[in-house]
Design a binder for these strands. Structure first.
Length: 427
RNA sequence: GUGGCUGUAGCUCAGCUGGCAGAGCACCUGUCUGUGGAUCAGGAUGUCGCGGGUUCGAGCCCCGUCAGCCACCCCA
């Protein structure tokens, strides 16, 4: 069949055939609903940015190893955006005095990272970003977590399926102080904590000692990571959980001292949502409070909290839990068949009439056997087929066949739009 | 960047110690000359990822390469 060699798609990209496109749009739609229900405004930034923008704050790995960069014709280093936050910071900084606070913004768009594709990771992906800027309160943090919970709930991810795990960097730092872990070791300890769930206990302990922890520090760290009640000693967390309770999302949230988040810029609350039992061990979404970012990029200090969700992991989790809505191939539920050459004008006129009545309609675009036309309607998941043949034209009627039930009735031509609307509304 | 697994029909895959390239599904035609989704009958379909090597002979063995998947790293 394929005599010619098909040029392959770029590694790590995904091709969106209609079925995949429907899934992507479904996620986008639910993201929009959740964001807007809390009053967040949709915005977007350029997809192309200068490499310089990321140098200021993003991790080295992200910029040096994972950015897609190229020189444009003028010689500037251009990057396909690997994340959104630096663009957000710039756009806020540029209009910092004109914007209205608390500022609530959300965005859903493409991002690129040059990394090895694997389960839950591609080189081109979509990401939901949502942030609140201005306030610095546990209640603001709780709102973002509630937005995440609302999204999860709206796509059918119940608390039994997915959960949001919460911690606070301030609490951890204060505990690290008590264990006399020096500031320069904090990053190492964060990585250690991150890795704990992926390693066997004894291997992890050995690794921790090799990384420079003393025996008492290790014991203290383990005790800390297993203490599910320590949040009660941290005022911000007490307020956060109180607010989450009031927001009605306490079923979705859980304190977990093991959540530290790799990124350096988080300053307070951090959280991450995971599939409770699925095969993806990656986070569905993650975020937290980052109060220093605006000042770091040259703006006036401004507090912020937000999170990001990639569409790849989210899509896998929904898929594995059977939560993707059934795909309807044709956006038009009605097919107008073409009976023969001499009747095609009738069919097109009828189609136009139905469209004018607000009904989505496809007309079969060539003259062929009825069998083929019906087969097409069936495969496209259409619900109604119309026939305008010699008998029908003679009697000013249209044969209306319900493809779900198989029933077929003759309807007076003038009544057709109304009849179809009734049929479409009935199920 | 490191390591492992896999590339055979449109899809999912089988293919024995190296010996004529297969199945199921999907597709097309007919049974049914105004009607789909069921049954039955028939039919078409291949750069065995690509390049080289070994061999009388390679889908199978060896080397290389590309791609996909999985894990690590990092992270959405």
């Amino acid at each position: 069949m394929a005599k010619n060699i098909i040029v392959p798609a770029v590694k790590g990209t995904r091709e969106f055939y209609p079925e995949e496109m429907a899934r992507r749009n479904y996620i986008y739609e639910k993201v929009r609903e959740a964001s807007q229900s809390f009053g967040y405004q949709e915005w977007d930034a350029p997809y192309l940015e200068t490499l310089e923008l990321y140098a200021a704050k993003s991790g080295e790995e992200l910029v040096k190893e994972q950015a897609f960069t190229f020189k444009d014709r003028g010689g500037s280093q251009i990057t396909l955006r690997p994340e959104l936050t630096p663009s957000l910071a710039r756009m806020i900084a540029k209009k910092q005095r004109q914007l209205v606070y608390p500022l609530r913004w959300w965005s859903f768009g493409p991002f690129w990272r040059y990394e090895r594709p694997q389960k839950g990771r591609s080189r081109e992906f979509f990401q939901w970003n949502i942030d609140m800027l201005g306030p610095n309160s546990p209640e603001a943090d709780a709102e973002l977590i509630a937005v995440a919970a609302k999204f999860m709930q709206s796509v059918g991810l119940s608390p039994e399926l997915a959960r949001i795990y919460i911690n606070n960097r301030g609490l951890m730092d204060s505990e690290f102080d008590k264990l006399a872990i020096p500031t320069e070791s904090r990053l190492m300890v964060s990585n250690l904590v991150d890795r704990r769930s992926k390693m066997k206990a004894d291997a992890w302990e050995k690794y921790a000692l090799e990384a420079g922890l003393s025996e008492p520090q290790l014991d203290g760290l383990v005790a800390l990571l297993e203490n599910k009640d320590i949040w009660k000693e941290w005022d911000d967390l007490v307020r956060l959980f109180t607010a989450l309770d009031a927001l009605g999302v306490s079923d979705y949230v859980e304190f977990d001292p093991n959540v530290v988040r790799g990124l350096l810029y988080y300053t307070g609350t951090v959280f991450e949502a995971f599939d409770v039992s699925g095969s993806v061990r990656r986070s569905i979404l993650g975020g937290g409070r980052y109060n220093n970012l605006l000042a770091d990029v040259g703006g006036d200090p401004l507090s912020a909290v937000g999170f990001a969700m990639g569409d790849v992991v989210a899509g896998i989790v929904l898929e594995e839990n059977g939560l993707i809505p059934e795909f309807e191939p044709s956006p038009a539920p009605v097919l107008v068949t073409v009976f023969g050459e001499e009747f095609s004008a009738e069919s097109y006129a009828l189609s136009a009439e139905l469209r004018a009545a607000g009904i989505n309609v496809s007309t079969y675009p060539e003259v062929t056997k009825m069998k083929k036309q019906f087969k097409f309607a069936n495969k496209m998941g259409m619900r109604i087929a119309l026939i305008v043949g010699s008998d029908e034209v003679e009697n000013a009627e249209v044969a209306v066949k319900n493809l779900m039930s198989g029933e077929q009735v003759k309807v007076a031509r003038a009544q057709v739009p109304e009849e179809i609307q009734k049929m479409l509304a009935s199920d």
